[in-house]
Simulated scan of single mutants.
Amino acid sequence: MPYRATAPFDWAAILRLIRSEFAYMDARINPPSSMHRLTEADMASTAENGEIWVVGTPPLACMFLTLQADSLYLGKLAVSASTRGKGMARALVEVAESRARALGLAAVELQTRVELLENQAAFQAMGFVETSRTAHPGFAQPTSISYRKAVQAR
């Protein structure tokens, strides 16, 4: 069951999970993932100014939630290879939806890279709709796809 990570937390364990599970992207995406610049201090700041949700101790899955104008941004969704296919990503997305509703927000938003077709398919299967494609600085072609999922008030 997902729980919210608050200080003090083993930020190094989450960083290891993200680096391990995002490593496969290195040979597939350009520019490199922002996870290479992510630090434990960044995560502590995210937890103070947003939310970090985790499954398991040590972490088997995680996501970062950041408040935007009318939505909740879901970032750094990572699930350990040993536990994929068990619904952890879906459970975390459901937490994001619940948090967006609780905060009175209209949607959950996220981004994935254009090269990561399996991520695109997974997010679409969870009800996310593509809203735009953007290019990182210095790139003429799109490098990222933005997705949005409206949340209904309950």
Rank of each mutant, 00 (worst) to 15 (best):
Y3P: 01
E115M: 09
Q124W: 00
P142D: 04
H36N: 03
M88W: 12
M88C: 12
R16P: 05
E115K: 04
A61N: 07
H136T: 03
K76M: 15
P59Y: 06
E48I: 05
S20R: 15
T112A: 00
E130S: 12
I145D: 02
P142N: 07
Y24M: 01
L17S: 07
Q124N: 08
L103W: 00
A41V: 10
Q152F: 13
T6K: 12
R133T: 00
E118H: 09
E40K: 04
M35N: 14
A81V: 10
A140F: 02
E94L: 14
P32R: 09
L72R: 01
A13Y: 06
Y73H: 14
A125F: 06
E109H: 06
T66S: 15
P59H: 00
M88S: 06
R148F: 01
A106R: 15
S33N: 10
L60W: 12
R4H: 04
N49K: 11
S132V: 02
E115D: 10
M1L: 06
P8K: 04
R19T: 03
Q152W: 12
E48W: 04
Q152A: 14
S34Y: 12
A150N: 02
L38T: 05
S34W: 09
S34G: 15
A13I: 06
A102T: 07
G85V: 02
A102L: 08
S82F: 03
A153T: 10
A27P: 05
F139K: 11
F139P: 07
A107Y: 11
A153S: 12
L67V: 13
A125C: 03
A150E: 02
Q111W: 02
P137N: 08
R148G: 00
Q124P: 03
G50Y: 01
Q111R: 13
A121M: 09
L92F: 02
T83Q: 12
A47Q: 09
A100Q: 08
E115F: 05
K149W: 09
I14M: 11
Y147N: 01
E118S: 02
F9K: 12
P59S: 09
C62N: 11
G56P: 14
R90G: 08
A150W: 05
E94T: 13
S33P: 08
P137I: 10
A150V: 04
R113N: 13
R4N: 05
R99F: 04
G56A: 13
R28K: 01
I29T: 03
M35D: 15
L17R: 08
S80Y: 01
A78L: 10
E115N: 07
Q68L: 15
K76Y: 14
G75E: 11
A27L: 07
A78H: 04
G87L: 03
S71I: 01
E48V: 12
A125R: 14
A125K: 14
H36S: 07
M63N: 13
I14P: 09
L74A: 14
W11T: 00
R113L: 03
